[in-house]
Design a binder for these strands. Structure first.
Lengths: 196, 196
DNA sequence: CGAAAATTTGACATGACTCAACTGGAGTGG
DNA sequence: CCACTCCAGTTGAGTCATGTCAAATTTTCG
């Protein structure tokens, strides 16, 4: 169960974990299973766990006044889920996180996370690397959301995340891109004509 | 010159810097002055320095195929500037960073930054805190960019960053929000009527 | 004052949304 | 195996928000 996490850590740090470190890591990351449609976090609750996805797929979304859902993140194996704002500040979250498929998680509390950051240099380094990548990814997404038209954004998304296109239904991807499912459907029809 | 940076670090970490640490910090952060419209980073160049703004205001923007500029960040005193992707990966940047006012920076190279992160625990902690805040801010901006209408986004921006509204011309703010200056002008006119 | 920059405005084009209806699978239970 | 439901995706018609482009106006600043 923990092997994919250990692989992930090693892959992100180039240093090798000692066996004591491995034991410590395995003790603080608790496995949990989620069924389809089961909530990992509900709006209004504090996000008590951050989690590494061993297997499965999840979505994080907000709901506006009209009741429309807006996808903030889509995540699959070897990604992290959780609402960082709520997790660190202990404030009620404005997001929901839900399993989209049968999902296996490794969850960790804030206290444990801080603990292993101090104890295990590789973890501290991993966090920095993750933040790094996250920062860059967010920057790009933001840039494209203010600079590009909807069809370019979809094209880009398809190019960068083909596995997501296969795995998540179209209306979730539309929402992720900030457009409606109807619009995405039309965009796809038009772009098909071009390639044919 | 360095006092505002030292204050910033102390403010973000709760631990107090030793005098050796202060000396080290002062030795790696080199002051630089920028005149209005002077570039700190040009598209195509590698971002060799990250910088803390002591005084002044800067903007980071991309330019699309049509030659239109898109504001990615607006920053003032006590903020950081630089293209993190280029800075850490040493790849050519796709962004430009320009002084919008007469600006004083404290610049640091990647090597020095890594060095002090290892040497000074408070710096490592500060980075984590910064990343944290950044992550949250980006998440919010992203959420609002896919969820909210243009007028809501502006309203929110005005509420959260009144100093920016005073300091940067309207067309930059429009670009930051992902709309045109014409649209923003109209949005403002309409919202004025409401309040009157 | 005069030039450059910023903002406003108008007319028009267009992209995206809304809402509702329809189609087509996928799964389920009788 | 069929009927049924649920969910995803498509489509059409009408509407609305925002973009485009250019000109007019106001502000800023040397």
């Amino acid at each position: 169960m923990h092997t994919s996490l250990l692989k992930y850590i090693n892959g992100h740090t180039s240093s090798v974990l000692s066996s004591e470190e491995v034991i410590l890591i395995e003790s603080v990351f608790k496995p949990k299973k989620f069924k389809k449609k089961q909530y990992f976090l509900q709006k209004g609750d504090v996000c008590k766990y951050y989690a590494f996805i061993v297997k499965g797929a999840m979505r994080q979304f907000s709901v506006d006044d009209k009741g429309t859902e807006h996808i903030i993140h889509l995540s699959v194996e070897n990604w992290w889920v959780g609402d960082r704002e709520s997790y660190t500040a202990l404030t009620p979250s404005v997001y929901n996180i839900e399993a989209w498929e049968e999902t296996d998680l490794l969850t960790i509390t804030k206290a444990d996370f801080f603990f292993i950051i101090d104890k295990i240099p590789a973890i501290a380094l991993m966090i920095r690397t993750m933040d790094q990548r996250n920062f860059i990814a967010n920057q790009r997404r933001l840039n494209s959301s203010i600079s590009d038209t909807a069809d370019k954004r979809y094209e880009e998304f398809e190019r960068c995340h083909p596995e997501f296109v296969r795995r998540f239904p179209q209306h979730l991807i539309a929402s992720f891109l900030g457009i409606t499912k109807s619009s995405l459907s039309r965009i796809r029809r038009l772009s098909l004509k071009k390639t044919v």
